[in-house]
Design a binder for these strands. Structure first.
Lengths: 229, 229
DNA sequence: CTTGGTTATAGTGTCGACATTATAGCCGCA
DNA sequence: TGCGGCTATAATGTCGACACTATAACCAAG
């Protein structure tokens, strides 16, 4: 899962950081059900840590938009809604479009080679109908382009905050999610534009790609609405 | 300062929240010098609170990107750099462009009236050469459009996180910052496009506007580089 | 005088306990 | 029986103290 290397905290040193990563994974993978209220004493006991450390970890989760807190009431895991998913797609369209434009300007030759390799992996997995891991390939693709923008703040905004939500939703839609062939073609066009250093075109293509992805997700949601688990 | 009403925590109930707002203001207005390391015991004593509450407040400041923390080392106020300022402009171009597009689709008639009023205020202040408060008018303008997008996550991302940084930099550039007339014309065009419900044009104009603002800031920086205060 | 190691000190991370607030259950009353 | 207020309980907010880490000052050897 190369896309995880984009995150900081690869090797957490403090208890609160370890807890944060543990809880984040548990939330993203549905181990802790969405919308559930967090009981600080309960969770602290379950993980064998103090409430102070737990609160610090919850604070970080709040920054990642994975939990919401209200004063004197407590924290609860975020729920999901079609509305929120559409909001995320709108933000991705704008920011990743810009990222693609910047990547076309700033990506190094080595990074372009890496991008091409991701495409090859993608193609190989399509040939073998490995639709499960396709998600990782897709995330790797988008992460690489974001990294290529060289805009540190943009990278943090997307890789560290927004993409947690993307993974959160993607995990729930995983079952029927297979737009691989079409997505691969679109990825291919984007990379070509970046290789030509055509930032304008790269941005346009990326925005189209994300909009297509959104439309597909919407269709899925109409057939199979999200359930609270 | 109507633009502050866009923030949550209007009336903080908990000590940590009050501290957070206090510290945020102090940082934005340069009361605490940029780049300064934070001593938890010192600050806690200065504000008469416990270190625990202070740490919670610092955590929130970290989410706003106003301080950075390293494990076992501590937190320090962010510094500023031309590079970072350019990064922020790139993000604003993408996200506020999208916000303008969405605002053209979703803004209500009342919100459009409010926008027009802001333009009138802007014009009045130009006539009186009140360049100081022009910044507030400008922030109000951008805040209103962001709010008009009706994308809750986008609103939070911009109003709650990114715009703290905008204010942080704007405070340091305040002295020579007067692009009022030009900015007013651009604002006018944007509002017209939104009134026509022309999202495509609104996005284009907003992106041009922010790019022009960036270019102006760059010129200022060449003449008068940022000093660490 | 410089450099490497050692010790002292200040600071951060962690914890358990107390104060305050929200919530749920219960009782009394209409 | 239904509703309003009260009480008890549990949870969150806050605090002070201890443990561990990084830094700075100091000393000794070259």
């Amino acid at each position: 899962m190369a896309f995880l290397t984009a995150c900081k905290l690869q090797d957490p040193v403090t208890i609160a950081d370890k807890l944060f990563l543990d809880l984040r994974r548990a939330i993203l993978e549905g181990e802790i059900p969405a919308g559930k209220k967090i009981s600080e004493p309960e969770l602290a006991a379950a993980y064998g840590v103090s409430r102070g450390s737990l609160r610090e970890a919850i604070g970080k989760l709040e920054n990642c938009n994975l939990v919401t807190r209200k004063p004197n009431i407590g924290a609860r895991i975020i729920g999901f809604s079609t509305e929120q998913l559409l909001e995320i797609y709108q933000i991705r369209e704008a920011t990743e479009g810009m990222a693609a434009r910047l990547a076309a300007e700033h990506m190094t030759a080595e990074e372009l080679v890496h991008l091409r390799k991701i495409l090859e992996r993608h193609q190989a997995e399509i040939a073998q109908h490995q639709r499960y891991s396709q998600h990782d390939v897709d995330l790797d693709f988008h992460f690489s382009i974001i990294q290529g923008s060289k805009n540190k703040r943009l990278i943090r905004m997307l890789c560290q905050d927004l993409y947690d939500l993307v993974r959160f939703y993607r995990f729930r839609l995983k079952s029927g999610f297979s737009r691989s062939e079409q997505a691969f073609q679109e990825h291919n066009l984007i990379v070509s534009a970046i290789e030509r250093r055509d930032g304008e075109m790269a941005e346009t293509l990326m925005r189209h790609h994300i909009r297509a992805s959104r439309d597909y997700a919407c269709k899925l949601l109409e057939q199979m609405p999200l359930s609270d688990t």
